[in-house]
């Protein structure tokens, strides 16, 4: 396997306005690297949803993106409250977001299901009280 190009971002948990900046940067990078638009869109949306989640639920975190020729792997790591029931969290419409978050246009319980929908593989490792690591892979030649 070829060496990956890697990108690392710190996601500021205090600033809702800047949320999504890492996803914007990844989108630009992938565009420059010449990936197909559909792949770029899937990566961008999945990462953006994850980034928003880290900001509204976990007080920020870190995002690492490994770009291979045939796939893109996104790892989102936070030290937030963790997800007690992952099956429940994966249900469309289930959300623990506050009214404030909803008033900002998010928290409809679509984030995690959406991340799964747009990626080829998604794994959630979460420990209550410690944090969550979400690993998502998007295959370049799929779909």
């Amino acid at each position: 396997m070829n060496d990956a190009l890697t990108f690392h971002f710190d996601v500021d948990g205090e600033n809702f306005v800047s949320a999504g900046q890492a996803s914007v940067q990844v989108k630009k990078n992938l565009r420059e690297l010449g990936f197909p638009p559909e792949v770029i869109r899937r990566v961008s949306i999945a990462m953006y949803e994850g980034e928003i989640n880290m900001v509204i639920h976990a007080g920020g975190g870190e995002a690492d993106v490994d770009v291979f020729e045939d796939r893109i792997v996104i790892v989102l790591t936070d030290r937030g409250p963790g997800i007690p029931d992952i099956d429940l969290a994966m249900q469309e419409g289930y959300s623990t977001a506050t009214d404030r978050v909803r008033s900002l246009g998010f928290g409809a319980g679509m984030g995690l299901p959406n991340m799964k929908r747009y990626t080829d593989e998604m794994r959630i490792d979460s420990t209550v009280g410690k944090g969550t690591v979400i690993t998502m892979s998007i295959l370049v030649n799929n779909r």
Binding site: F16, V17, A19, G20, K27, R41, I45, Y48, G105, F106
Partner: peptide
């Protein structure tokens, strides 16, 4: 009718 920066970011993500 929603006004915050994530509206623009969302639009960008969706091309």
């Amino acid at each position: 009718g929603l006004v915050n920066s994530q509206v623009i970011r969302t639009a960008e993500m969706m091309d």
